[in-house]
Amino acid sequence: MWSTVFLAGLITYFTRFSMIAFVKKDMLSEKTRIVLSYVPSAVFPAIIFPLVFLDVNETLEIVGNSKIIAAIVAILFGFFSRNVLITIFSGLISYWVLIFLLKY
């Protein structure tokens, strides 16, 4: 595990270093830049969706899944506020309300 952490550190450092040391302004084409600007939208949902839609047995859980409702609340709050903190906490609080108060 330690070697994995060190390697992950090296990879992360290298992507940061290479952009300062090697990547020059005209090196990336306009098209590459457009595609790279989509990276967060292409990567983060791959982490988000399974954690919301799948249950502990890794099977799809739609009915009675409080995480889906809480995520929708977070998306709505995020959409209108565009605020990172409000997004996280609106989702977390509605999740707690659902599982503890409503026993959903």
């Binding site: 967060p40 939208s41 983060f44 949902p45 982490i47 988000i48 969706f49 954690l51 919301v52 995480k67 809480a70 995520a71 977070a74 998306i75 995020g78 959409f79 506020s81 565009r82 605020n83 990172v84 903190l85 997004t87 996280i88 989702g91 977390l92 999740y95 707690w96 599982i99």
Partner: peptide
Amino acid sequence: LGLSFAIPLTFLSLLVQDFK
């Protein structure tokens, strides 16, 4: 408390600028 649910929420929050 199910705080692991904070993981998808945190990543969700990093995308709010692009929701529109």
